[in-house]
Nucleic acid binder design. Structure first.
Lengths: 110, 110
DNA sequence: AATCGCTATGATTATAACACATAACGAGTG
DNA sequence: CACTCGTTATGTGTTATAATCATAGCGATT
């Protein structure tokens, strides 16, 4: 048996940022494209794009600046607002996982 | 925007205990029946029973001792192992929500 | 103008949630 | 002893949700 956790942000009761979405955004930052990020996350492009779009609509601002066509077919990069949000998420979540795991082990004597 | 969290236990990658399931079990403890607990949780009996059964199979021991027929048609009560698990879950989760909220407010200056 | 791979989105399929329905049970009651 | 009653347990069909497949359009570079 193991303990798991998730921490996410909501707007009007709908998810706008979760651990998975954070990883996806970071993958976009690394690869420079939604498509490559989707491959990295092992999900179809469709799903990656949809989740980002969903978050953007709910938040009311863009997380990803995309370019269609051009060299390499196009690409994507994170907006400043997105980078700021990721940073805030990391700050809030940092260390909590470790605390949780420690408590779990203490409680179950592993 | 608000922060949300969930903490759950897994066995072989499958959920065996979550906040929702804890509440369900506690409702069974209070009411003495899965049926009444389901009403309290505002879900059909079918679902309540299924989730409990699922958890029991995955854990390999019973969470709820049921009696079918008899006075009042039957009933249900938590096993000692179940009560122990609930207590462990509460111990682990206790206070984490408050810490999370505090961090959220500090980070977003609310 | 031809290319390339990426964005964007429509259409389809698979999966999970939900609601409905019903059999079996057994302590108490008349 | 036949009957009642509310509960457990489970089958079945339907609906909603999520994942997958497929394809059009773009534009800097060659």
């Amino acid at each position: 048996m193991q303990v798991k956790s998730n921490i996410w942000f909501e707007v009007d009761g709908r998810v706008v940022l979760s651990r998975w979405r954070i990883r996806l955004l970071q993958a976009i930052e690394q690869t420079g494209s939604i498509s490559k990020a989707a491959d990295l996350m092992d999900v179809p492009y469709r799903r990656a794009w949809e989740k980002i779009h969903e978050s953007e609509v709910r938040l009311g601002f863009k997380l990803v600046e995309t370019q269609v066509g051009g060299v390499g077919g196009g690409g994507a990069r994170l907006t400043a607002a997105c980078i700021d949000l990721i940073q805030k998420y990391d700050t809030i979540v940092k260390g909590l996982g470790a605390v949780l795991l420690q408590r779990f082990e203490d409680t179950f004597d592993t």
